[in-house]
């Protein structure tokens, strides 16, 4: 089994990065690829719960689709604790599918990864 780690460093709604990161994650399961998602830097804003971008930004919240990740066999969804702290986001504000890990744990995960793509 090939494993692929997809790192998201971009915030939601300001570019296609988050959407294309998610598209790649959802496709991975169809192609015999074990995927790990890492949200770090401004990427952590993507997994904050209760986003309502429909009216002001005319965009759909990706957080809902993230909720479906387990149905696509994406179980490894990690969020950088240090990035959260820097942005004053509490772990309780995040969607359920995430596991918070320290920056050093995230660094280890990336070091151990077979393939990495950064968005």
């Amino acid at each position: 089994m090939v494993s692929l780690t997809l790192i998201l460093t971009c915030p939601p709604y300001s570019s296609c990065a988050a959407k294309e990161h998610l598209d790649m994650a959802l496709a991975a399961g169809n192609f015999d690829t074990d995927v790990t998602l890492i949200f770090t830097g401004d990427g952590v804003f993507n997994v904050v719960d209760n986003q309502q971008p429909e009216k002001t930004l005319q965009q759909k919240p990706l957080a809902k689709t993230y909720g479906a990740l387990p149905f696509y066999d994406v179980e490894n969804v990690f969020v950088c604790a240090d990035s959260l702290k820097q942005r004053n986001i509490d772990a309780t504000q995040l969607i359920d599918v995430c596991t918070v890990k320290s920056a050093s744990n995230i660094k280890q995960l990336i070091g151990d990864a077979q393939h990495v793509v950064v968005f």
């Binding site: 090939v2 692929l4 598209d23 790649m24 496709a27 991975a28 169809n30 192609f31 015999d32 690829t33 393939h115 793509v117």
Partner: peptide, 15 residues
């Protein structure tokens, strides 16, 4: 489609 990316991933030592 993205499938082609995964085919490349599977058929190479390094991406």
């Amino acid at each position: 489609g993205l499938g082609e990316f995964f085919s490349l991933l599977h058929s190479s030592d390094r991406m």
